[in-house]
Design a protein around this nucleic acid. Sequence first.
DNA 1: GCGGAGAGTTCCAACGTTGTAATGTGCGTA
DNA 2: TACGCACATTACAACGTTGGAACTCTCCGC
Lengths: 334, 334
Amino acid sequence: MHDVARLAGVSIKTVSNVVNDYNHIRPETRKRVLDAIETLGYRPNLSARGLRSGRTGVISLIIPDLRNAYFAELADAVMRAADTQNLSVIIEQSGDSRERELSLLTGPRRQMVDGILYSVLALGEDDAHLLDAIDTPMVLLGERIFHGPTDHVTMRNTEGARAATEHLISLGRTRIVALGAHRGEVVGSAGLRLRGYRQALDDAGLPYDEALVGEVGGWYRKEGADAMRRLVASGVPFDGVVAFNDLIALGAMRVMQEAGLSIPADVAVIGFDDIDETRYTLPSLSTINPGREEIAEVAVRLLMERIASPGVAIAPREHLSAFTVVPRESSAAV
Amino acid sequence: MHDVARLAGVSIKTVSNVVNDYNHIRPETRKRVLDAIETLGYRPNLSARGLRSGRTGVISLIIPDLRNAYFAELADAVMRAADTQNLSVIIEQSGDSRERELSLLTGPRRQMVDGILYSVLALGEDDAHLLDAIDTPMVLLGERIFHGPTDHVTMRNTEGARAATEHLISLGRTRIVALGAHRGEVVGSAGLRLRGYRQALDDAGLPYDEALVGEVGGWYRKEGADAMRRLVASGVPFDGVVAFNDLIALGAMRVMQEAGLSIPADVAVIGFDDIDETRYTLPSLSTINPGREEIAEVAVRLLMERIASPGVAIAPREHLSAFTVVPRESSAAV
DNA sequence: GCGGAGAGTTCCAACGTTGTAATGTGCGTA
DNA sequence: TACGCACATTACAACGTTGGAACTCTCCGC
């Protein structure tokens, strides 16, 4: 920067002003400085800038696991949204571990980022107070904590699950399986989606049958396959499946097909998340598009607002993205 | 840090020494400092450290697209490897664009990272000289540039493709399709894998038939499906498919199944990459495991070595990871 | 009792930038 | 002519840390 200043014949601060788009600079001076920057190939030192200004231009995204397509696509959307704001994104994987989620929130790396997008998985509503102590701007994603001290962006889980269930009901299905429940959970995605499922049944005057609720430990293919295997083995008849995410649906579809069930003729299936893969499976999977782009954009925007006004207490905000039902072959009319 | 020093009754530099595990510190002093750090909740300012020491503890990983499961899993492996070295990872998506790849390599954010893991896609062998000008430590992943000035870590593409092809040949298949070629390409993954395919045919005394080579524009499900659709429409008979990655294989499988072809009875299929999904498709997909963990670990290690000895010219190193053939249902003996 | 080695600690400066306040310039108006 | 004001630029200090040199203290051998 000193070199640039010398070459352009101005003070070092003027160079800084040019770089930071300060208002009052004569066009001619600006050009001279920019030329010098060009000739010398000068790049600002971001550590120094971070030290002096208190901003690093980096946010961190805490997600459970990138190998889960939902989170990979979420990360993709977040990175695109961040890119438009000239932010870099550090991704940190919490790996479904409560301990690790906490250590990521409090560890020294927090020092390096201006804000945190935190996709909560292991912490629960009761842990909301733990977030009070964290002064880094933060926006929560997901369904585990609703009334914390931070902003919260997510999808309409209950409404989405209700719409999915209604979709199958509209096809004439009456014995519809819910796949992906977590025992006893009320608040998380599983609890909310189960509630939506139940609402749709109630509205249609269909009975809620516990035997049709498949519980799982995690939301991956394997768990979906396992739960479906148990269900098939149990002999309980069913003609529709609302899976609480696409991976569960795919795992279950595979088991049903092995068991000789035809989709959608025997069983209509709908998933949740609209991951890319669902377009190419056989049959292609109907699903709920949760509005990932909207979630990412809003989350980044809210975070930026907090970052831009440090020290200002902003009341927690909540944003629920719009979802859409995406009908595909797995729930086509027969 | 000043506060910690005051509370512990030592100088600020001693605190720094404790934090940085300097050798000569009396255990008692160390304890006093650590206690003070604990009480005050002190966290080092990473920007300041970065400014002073020239290291940020962050590396960047440039990949084409996180929505591609291969790169998501690669990113996952890299982040795990980086984590063991206390490194953070900034992921940047180049989106298959040459322009963007270049701007990521030269942009101001480079200033923020100690090193770059660069999964080359758009640049080619002829662009290797562009890397000369970049002084940030760098390790290349992938197949586009082999003789650049940097380290290079990748898999044994040709050998892997040959093993995949041999696997199908060992099942008695003789009209084997290669799916995923890029017109005219010699060096990239597509070119190398095509070479392996051809070697296997030659070794087995099978003819190389251009009609069995399916060219694609990209390595996604859609392109695999499209290529297979053309092949089926062409009426050329075939009984095996070596796809150059799993997504292509999955797209192609879907089209074959729609066309009434049974896998593996009519057509045996093997892919490349061993992404998680391949375990759960119907049928499950045989594939080549490229040794992703090994690639990630070695790449991070080589990068760390370069970072640790700044200014020292290290001759470019090349590491080829071990691969394995993973036989699954799509190539089961009938 | 003295010199010397080395452990343990401290002092000082510097990393490259930006916020604040101050200074310098030109112009219209009293 | 003097004044105020807006624009344009600059001087200086400070952000929090660490490298390096310097200092003190302890212990050992002679």
